[in-house]
Simulated scan of single mutants.
Amino acid sequence: MRLNDVKPQKGSKKRRKRVGRGISAGQGASAGLGMRGQKSRSGSGTRPGFEGGQQPLYRRIPKLKGFPLINRRVYTTINVEKLNNLPANSEVTLESLKQCGILTTVKGELKILGNGELNVPLQVKAAAFTGQARAKIEAAGGSCETA
């Protein structure tokens, strides 16, 4: 037999404690609630999560603006419309875009986005493509290769 096995006898019922019924009711003058303060007054105490006027935890957490992704992938993005000035059937990589001056800074791997139109067939090698970008490159007669 363990403490978590102990149950009241079948059919037995314990009466609830009737507090606040005067000094002779068995809980003394303050009904077992202490002398003064919000928790000794009638009515409910404080709502769940109340911290006495201090900014509660559930209001402090949103200031953190979510939680950062560990090992987040950072891309250097470029739209399809910027690739229109390149010569036909040329190979497009991160290095080639930097050499011809289309890209000035490199933040990470190359990702091609689908904004704008493309009229030139190109062989594009990038880390990622959006669905629209892949469709536009292939519609112009080019090819997409994920590196």
Rank of each mutant, 00 (worst) to 15 (best):
A147K: 04
S90F: 03
C144Y: 15
R73N: 13
R36I: 05
T77H: 08
A31E: 02
P62A: 07
R18W: 12
L94T: 01
L122R: 02
P87A: 15
S44T: 15
G141N: 04
A147F: 14
A31F: 08
L64R: 00
P48H: 13
T76F: 12
G20E: 03
G37C: 05
K107L: 11
G34C: 11
Q9Y: 10
T46C: 08
G141K: 00
K98Q: 06
A31D: 12
Q123P: 02
I78M: 01
T130Q: 01
K17G: 03
A128G: 02
G116T: 12
R47I: 15
T46F: 15
G20F: 08
S44V: 09
S44A: 09
G43I: 14
G43S: 11
R36N: 07
G32K: 06
E109L: 14
V80A: 00
G37S: 13
T104M: 10
G32H: 08
S96L: 01
T130L: 00
I137V: 01
G20Y: 00
T105E: 12
G32V: 13
S96I: 06
L113D: 10
E138K: 14
R72Y: 07
L103K: 14
S44G: 14
L103T: 11
L86V: 00
A133M: 07
K98C: 05
T76W: 06
A29S: 05
S96Q: 03
E91S: 15
E91A: 14
V92F: 10
P121E: 00
